[in-house]
Simulated assay, not measured.
Amino acid sequence: MKILAISDIHGKFFRLEGIMRKSDPVDLVVVAGDLTQGGPPENAVRSISELKHFCKNVLCVAGNWDTPEVKAAIGQYAVDLEETPRIYKNTEFMGLGGSNPTGNNTPSEYTEEELEYKLDVLLSHNLPQRTVLVTHTPPQNTLDMTPHGAAGSPALRRALEKVDVVICGHIHGARGKIKDGAWVINPGYAAEGQAAVIDLDTMDIIWIDSVV
């Protein structure tokens, strides 16, 4: 199964055409949050519409910059994995939107206790053979380094032994793929034309750079 992983569009939906042009055909598109920069919802709808012309199966979570109105639009026009986990070809996709506190008072931030509760609910059932957790924020100490230190979530860190793959974003300069219990993948900064095609069967990745 191949997926196109995208994160941090930040309203720049015009970057998606170049990303899709460089992508292989895929079974699913996964968006790991920050479709907008604080709104408006129409920007999220435009991004989802563009992506649906490429692949009808679009799965999303909201990011810390996505307002409640944006999250509602995601649920109306795509699959909000935080609200509705989905199983495709024996793989369960589930989501955790928003982020841990950033210090910038962005629209969708949660305490670590809230994130841990959300994860406990997501992971409380019997999981299928393969699970993909789509989050906006990365796990602590994994693809989360900023000039001010590690910015990831300790709650997500503790979840790494319970899932197979984590697709995240949030830290624009932390693009990469690391095996740390689960595979953790940041597809890059979509607002600058970055994305990734992930083969979940082999864990091979094609890194997309549509702006050079």
Rank of each mutant, 00 (worst) to 15 (best):
C60G: 01
A159G: 12
V29D: 00
E42R: 09
M145L: 14
N104P: 03
P138I: 04
A159V: 08
L35I: 02
G11V: 05
F93M: 06
A174H: 11
V31G: 03
V212T: 07
I167M: 09
Q129A: 14
S210I: 02
E92H: 10
K177W: 13
V30C: 02
D27G: 09
R21I: 09
V163T: 12
S153Q: 05
A150E: 12
Q76S: 12
G98L: 11
L81E: 01
K71Y: 05
Y110M: 11
F14D: 03
A44L: 01
Y88L: 10
T135L: 15
I6F: 00
M203P: 12
V134D: 01
T135M: 13
D27Y: 04
G103K: 05
E116S: 11
G33C: 09
N100E: 08
I6K: 00
N90K: 14
K56A: 09
C168F: 13
A182C: 09
D164T: 14
T84P: 02
E82T: 10
V166A: 12
W183I: 11
I198D: 03
T36M: 08
E82N: 06
I74S: 01
P139K: 14
A151W: 13
L119D: 03
V211G: 09
S23Q: 05
I48A: 03
R157L: 15
A78S: 02
E109F: 15
A62K: 00
V132N: 01
D164A: 11
E109K: 11
P147R: 13
W65K: 09
I206H: 15
A150R: 15
S124E: 13
V165M: 08
A174T: 04
D27S: 13
N64P: 09
K118Q: 06
I171F: 11
V31R: 00
V61A: 10
T111N: 14
K118S: 08
V163P: 09
M203N: 11
D120K: 14
S23N: 07
S23G: 08
T111K: 14
T135D: 12
V121Q: 10
S7L: 04
A191C: 09
V70N: 01
D34E: 12
G188A: 04
V212L: 14
K89N: 01
N64R: 13
I178H: 11
R175S: 07
T84M: 04
P187L: 05
Y189D: 15
V45C: 05
Q194A: 09
G38F: 01
F54C: 11
T135E: 13
P187G: 10
L122S: 02
T36S: 07
G176Q: 14
G39D: 00
N105L: 12
L127R: 15
A195S: 07
D66V: 00
Y110H: 13
K71W: 00
R130S: 08
P147M: 12
W183Q: 12
I208R: 06
P41N: 01
Q37S: 08
R157C: 05
S108G: 07
V58D: 03
V29T: 05
K179E: 10
A190M: 10
I171E: 06
L4Y: 00
Q140K: 15
R86Y: 02
G39K: 03
F14C: 01
V132H: 06
